[in-house]
Computed example of a mutant assay.
Amino acid sequence: MSTPLSTDVVIIGAGPVGLFAIFECGMLRLKTHVVDSLDAVGGQCTALYPEKPIYDIPGFPSIDAADLIANLEKQAAPFQPEYHLNQQVMGLEKVGDKWRVTTDKGTVIDAFAVIVAAGCGAFGPNRPPIQGLEAYEATGGVQYYVKKREDFRGKRVVIAGGGDSAVDWALSLSDVAASVQVVHRRPKFRAAPESAAKLDELAKAGKIELVIPYQLGGLEGENGKLSGVIVETLEGEKRTLPADVLLPFFGLSMTLGPIADWGLNLDHNHIAITPARCQTSVEGIFAIGDIATYEGKLKLILSGFAEAASAAHGAHAVARPGEIFHFEYSTTKGVP
């Protein structure tokens, strides 16, 4: 085992909520080490949809996910966090008055507190049960994420799904794609009302076609080059939609991985917490963001930001148990 590193707080997860937790801990003079299984900070914002506009960040009517991550990283930088990327936390045990975190790369970190900001845990797309899907995945005919809108310029795009991702990308790609057809089993979409209304407006204007009520039935093409998407109704009526790319948005499959073995109180693959300090069932371990759950929880980035502040204050009480703390606003305190 390598010589343990020492810090005040280990943050597991370098997505937007984890990055903001660095800032909040730094404002309380707590040093942080950050571990993430991806090879870059940003979590899903970086890995899945860097060019997707986000509309519910206070002060930004619209901001692309990649720009949000860049700003959060810049905001955290004055507090000199140490990042351990492309590593998965495998072990968590109490050693003396600290928690010992170990990764699959042999990194060992001792900390007074641990903040779990692991998002969905280990994630991957829910793939539709279509024969021959793998051949089209290999050539880009079937994709589950949009990293660059320009990659779809002039292409015939079929989007399957009825949630926020399907609706948001239909709206966004309608500006660059040759055509956008949205396949959904029912007329009602499970998306933000304003986005669903915009989708309906574009459909009425002929810029998007809503293929309803249909579901995916198969794919057409040769040598992995997609030429059509077969859709069908529950009654068996079939259509073939001309397509260069199929984007199935059926959500992510989520596994907690080693987190499930840490003795935390779990609720349907989420970590149950006490909202006031985002404390888990184990003292000194906190959870924030999408992985945390409590009554009335809203799965929004801005909710995760507030949880990061609460968890940082909880971690401060653990790391500095006898220290008298006088809270100061950032406007009066400033940053390094």
Rank of each mutant, 00 (worst) to 15 (best):
residue 71 N to Q: 05
residue 41 V to N: 09
residue 154 G to E: 15
residue 28 L to G: 02
residue 334 G to Q: 12
residue 63 I to L: 01
residue 118 A to K: 04
residue 283 E to F: 00
residue 168 D to L: 01
residue 198 K to D: 09
residue 279 Q to P: 00
residue 134 E to I: 12
residue 166 A to S: 12
residue 303 S to W: 01
residue 287 A to Y: 08
residue 306 A to D: 14
residue 72 L to V: 01
residue 53 P to M: 03
residue 55 Y to T: 00
residue 280 T to R: 06
residue 55 Y to F: 01
residue 208 I to A: 13
residue 166 A to Y: 07
residue 68 L to P: 00
residue 263 G to I: 11
residue 280 T to L: 09
residue 119 G to F: 07
residue 174 S to P: 09
residue 164 D to Y: 04
residue 32 T to H: 07
residue 111 A to V: 12
residue 319 A to T: 04
residue 198 K to C: 12
residue 28 L to Q: 10
residue 256 L to E: 01
residue 64 D to M: 05
residue 64 D to K: 02
residue 155 K to H: 07
residue 42 G to N: 13
residue 277 R to E: 11
residue 281 S to Q: 04
residue 142 V to M: 10
residue 262 W to S: 12
residue 141 G to Q: 07
residue 28 L to S: 12
residue 315 A to Y: 09
residue 217 G to A: 15
residue 200 D to R: 15
residue 258 P to R: 03
residue 264 L to F: 12
residue 283 E to V: 03
residue 32 T to V: 11
residue 119 G to W: 03
residue 231 V to M: 07
residue 7 T to Y: 01
residue 209 E to Y: 05
residue 61 P to D: 13
residue 309 A to I: 03
residue 167 V to S: 13
residue 265 N to A: 15
residue 300 L to T: 05
residue 18 G to F: 00
residue 215 Q to P: 02
residue 178 A to T: 09
residue 305 F to W: 02
residue 254 M to I: 03
residue 246 L to K: 12
residue 154 G to D: 14
residue 97 D to A: 14
residue 45 C to W: 01
residue 167 V to E: 06
residue 213 P to L: 10
residue 143 Q to Y: 07
residue 53 P to E: 04
residue 49 Y to I: 08
residue 274 T to V: 05
residue 67 D to G: 01
residue 269 N to W: 02
residue 134 E to Q: 15
residue 178 A to F: 10
residue 295 E to V: 00
residue 158 V to S: 06
residue 198 K to L: 10
residue 74 K to D: 09
residue 260 A to S: 15
residue 214 Y to M: 14
residue 318 V to D: 03
residue 159 I to N: 11
residue 146 V to S: 08
residue 330 S to M: 13
residue 333 K to N: 01
residue 212 I to F: 09
residue 82 E to M: 03
residue 124 G to K: 14
residue 66 A to I: 00
residue 42 G to C: 00
residue 235 E to T: 14
residue 150 E to V: 11
residue 18 G to H: 01
residue 40 A to L: 04
residue 267 D to Q: 13
residue 189 F to H: 09
residue 321 P to T: 04
residue 334 G to T: 04
residue 74 K to C: 02
residue 158 V to Q: 09
residue 264 L to Q: 05
residue 232 E to R: 06
residue 131 Q to F: 12
residue 10 V to W: 04
residue 44 Q to C: 04
residue 161 G to P: 09
residue 5 L to V: 11
residue 211 V to I: 15
residue 14 A to M: 03
residue 150 E to M: 11
residue 269 N to Y: 10
residue 84 H to L: 12
residue 15 G to C: 09
residue 61 P to H: 13
residue 60 F to M: 00
residue 263 G to V: 07
residue 27 M to Y: 04
residue 104 D to Q: 09
residue 244 D to Y: 02
residue 212 I to K: 14
residue 201 E to P: 02
residue 69 I to A: 01
residue 45 C to Y: 05
residue 301 I to T: 00
residue 171 L to H: 05
residue 322 G to D: 14
